[in-house]
Simulated scan of single mutants.
Amino acid sequence: MSGHFDFLNMNFFTKASVYPGSIGTFRYRFQRTGWMEDGSIQVWVYENTSFELAQDVETETFPWTEEGVEQIRAWLEQKLAERGTEPYRIPYPPKKK
């Protein structure tokens, strides 16, 4: 069985210094500092809203190493299991009767 975050590897974090993502309503964000083997990656998880407006935010910082990336994948899987997700949808106001 493969995990939701198997795509994360050392090179993934070279694509951008900040990367937001989501699995349905489960939102996450990465921000790296430094460079491989010498830097760190901060990870946030938050509710289904914009990062700037989120109130239920959890964060951890990991080393930018092979072991750190493994820890990121495990932490995100744990948070996804705890918080859950639903398919993304745009809420519409109820129809007037």
Rank of each mutant, 00 (worst) to 15 (best):
F51S: 05
A74K: 00
Y19Q: 14
K97V: 11
M1Q: 09
V69I: 14
K15L: 11
E66G: 10
F12Q: 06
I90L: 08
W64F: 08
I41Q: 07
N9C: 09
F13H: 04
K96N: 10
R83P: 03
D56C: 04
T25M: 11
P87N: 13
L76N: 03
P94Y: 10
L8M: 08
E66N: 12
G39I: 07
K97Q: 15
R83L: 10
Q71C: 00
P87I: 12
T14C: 05
T14P: 02
A74W: 05
E66P: 04
E77G: 06
K96I: 15
Y92V: 13
E52Q: 14
G68T: 04
L53D: 15
Q42T: 14
Y28A: 00
G21I: 05
F7L: 08
L8Q: 10
F13P: 01
E82G: 06
D6T: 08
Y88F: 15
V69Y: 02
D56W: 01
V18S: 15
M10K: 06
G84S: 06
W35L: 12
A16V: 01
E60Y: 00
E86A: 15
M10Y: 04
H4A: 12
V18R: 13
P94K: 09
D6G: 00
F12K: 07
E52N: 14
V57N: 02
E47I: 00
P20T: 08
T25Y: 06
L53P: 07
F5I: 06
S22P: 02
P93K: 08
T25L: 04
E70P: 01
F12L: 08
P20G: 01
R32Q: 09
N11S: 05
T85M: 14
F26P: 03
F7R: 03
G34I: 01
T14E: 12
P91G: 11
M10Q: 13
A74H: 01
N11W: 05
Y46P: 04
T49D: 09
A81K: 11
A54E: 02
T33M: 11
A81S: 12
V43W: 11
Y46N: 05
T49A: 10
T33K: 11
W64M: 03
P91F: 13
W35D: 14
S22C: 12
F26A: 01
S22N: 14
S2I: 02
L8D: 06
F26T: 03
F5P: 06
I72Y: 03
E60I: 00
E82M: 13
H4R: 12
M36P: 09
P63H: 11
Y28L: 06
S2E: 07
E52L: 14
G3M: 12
E52R: 14
G21K: 00
S40F: 13
E82S: 08
V45Y: 03
I90N: 13
R29I: 07
I23Q: 09
V45G: 04
G3W: 04
Y19T: 13
E70F: 10
V43D: 03
D6C: 00
T61Y: 09
I41K: 06
D6L: 06
Y92E: 12
F7P: 03
F62A: 03
Q78V: 08
G3A: 11
A54W: 02
W64R: 09
K97T: 11
G24V: 05
L80W: 06
E86C: 10
Q31T: 08
E67F: 02
Q42K: 13
E37Q: 14
K79T: 01
E60C: 00
N48M: 05
P91E: 13
M36R: 15
L80D: 03
G39H: 08
Y28C: 07
S2H: 10
T49C: 14
Y92I: 10
P20D: 15
